[in-house]
Every structure is written in C-alpha cells, then in structure tokens.
Simulated assay, not measured.
Amino acid sequence: MIYFAVKYLHVLGAIVLLGTGSGIAFFMLMAHRTGDAGHVFRTARTVVVADFIFTATAVVAQPLTGFALAQMLGLPLTQRWLWVSLALYVVAGLFWLPVVWMQMRMRDLAGQAMRMNTPLPSDYHRLFRLWFAFGFPGFGSVAVILWLMIAKPDF
C-alpha cells in the first residue's frame, strides 16, 4: 500500500513538473505575444505563484519519492540511468532557478510599464529571450528524466 502511494506521488510529481512547466511556458508566451504590459503583468504574477506552489513542491518531492521507490524496489543506486537522472535533475534546477527570477523580474518590469502606460522595456524583452532559451534545456532535462524513469535503460 505504501509503495503505491509513493509511486503515485512520484508519478504525480513528474506530471506536475512537465504540466506546470509547459503550462507556464504557454501562458507566458501567449501573454508576451500580445505586447500588452498589463496582460503580461497579470500573467507573470500568476505564473510566479504557480511556480512556487506547484513546481517548487514537486522539485522537493521528486528526489525524496524517487529515493524511496528505489529502496522499496531494491534498485541498486549504482545504476547509470539513476545517476544520469540525478545529473539531469541538477541541470534542470540550474536552469529553473534563474527562470523563476526572470519571471519575477519580467513581472515587475511589465507592472511598471503598465502603471506608467508605456511599452514593455528593452530589459523585459532581453529577459524574455533568455527565459525562452533557458526553457529548452530545463524542460528537456525533465522530459528525458521521465523517459529514463519509464525505460530504465541498461547502459
């Protein structure tokens, strides 16, 4: 019974990471495309909250539930796919942390532009390009981790 609860939480965490990540990317991109500072501000404000509530929770839960599952299944922690997963998890985190900061800064810049009734500033556009670029290795790492969890390749 405990095994199924831990497995459920682990799979749910992976879904939350992928789902929240793709949802955040979609809504931020769509808001950005409008060029409307107010729309970007409101979207980024919600995205930052979602990242802290959902993504941060899953980020903490994933390694804990993954370790518990490995122990319950008797998987040796020396398997390469586990180490590759952990390395990719670190890569994802190294890209995710700056992305959260960028989202907060873009939110603030959009809020300032909205209050001053001015276009989104060049700093916002520079951060958006970086945010967009950081999403590929960050999200890609999580997608590969999910594949590794399912396939458990022997390499």
Rank of each mutant, 00 (worst) to 15 (best):
L75Y: 14
R80M: 08
G21F: 04
G111W: 02
F54I: 00
L94D: 06
I53T: 11
Y89N: 03
A87P: 07
S85I: 05
L73V: 04
S22R: 04
F52I: 09
W101C: 14
G66I: 09
Q103C: 02
T55R: 03
W81Y: 13
T43V: 15
Q79L: 00
R45T: 13
V60G: 00
A110H: 06
V16R: 00
Q79D: 03
F27S: 10
L77N: 05
L109Y: 03
A87D: 12
Y8C: 12
T20W: 02
I53P: 01
G38C: 04
R33V: 06
A50I: 10
L29R: 06
A31W: 03
V84T: 13
Q79K: 09
Q62Y: 01
M72K: 06
L64K: 02
F67S: 09
V47Y: 00
A110E: 06
I53V: 14
I53Q: 03
A31D: 12
P98A: 15
D108Y: 01
A56N: 12
D36N: 14
A68L: 01
W101N: 13
F41Q: 09
V48P: 08
A56T: 14
L17Y: 00
M104I: 04
H39E: 14
A92R: 00
G21Q: 04
V47L: 07
A70R: 14
W81T: 03
G38M: 13
T43N: 04
L77K: 08
D36S: 10
G38L: 09
A92L: 03
L88N: 00
F41E: 14
S85N: 07
A68S: 11
R42W: 09
A61D: 07
F67M: 09
V49D: 02
G66P: 00
W96D: 10
Y8S: 15
L9S: 11
T55V: 11
T34D: 13
T20D: 10
R33E: 15
I53E: 02
M104Y: 13
V47Q: 07
A37G: 13
L18W: 10
W101K: 15
V59G: 04
V100W: 13
M72V: 01
F95L: 05
T65F: 00
D51K: 09
L29F: 15
Y8E: 15
V48L: 13
L9W: 10
G35W: 07
A113F: 10
M106K: 09
Q103F: 08
G23H: 12
H32F: 10
H39D: 11
T65G: 02
L12W: 12
H32I: 06
F52C: 06
D51N: 14
T78M: 02
L82H: 07
T46M: 12
D108W: 08
M102V: 02
M72Q: 13
M106E: 13
Q62E: 08
V40R: 04
M102Y: 14
V84Q: 11
M104V: 05
R107E: 10
L29W: 14
T78R: 03
V90P: 11
R105D: 14
L17N: 01
L12R: 06
L97P: 02
F67H: 09
L9V: 04
L88P: 02
S85E: 02
I15F: 10
G74I: 01
T43L: 12
W96Q: 12
Q103V: 13
I53D: 02
K7H: 15
A61H: 00
V16G: 05
D36L: 07
H10N: 04
I15N: 05
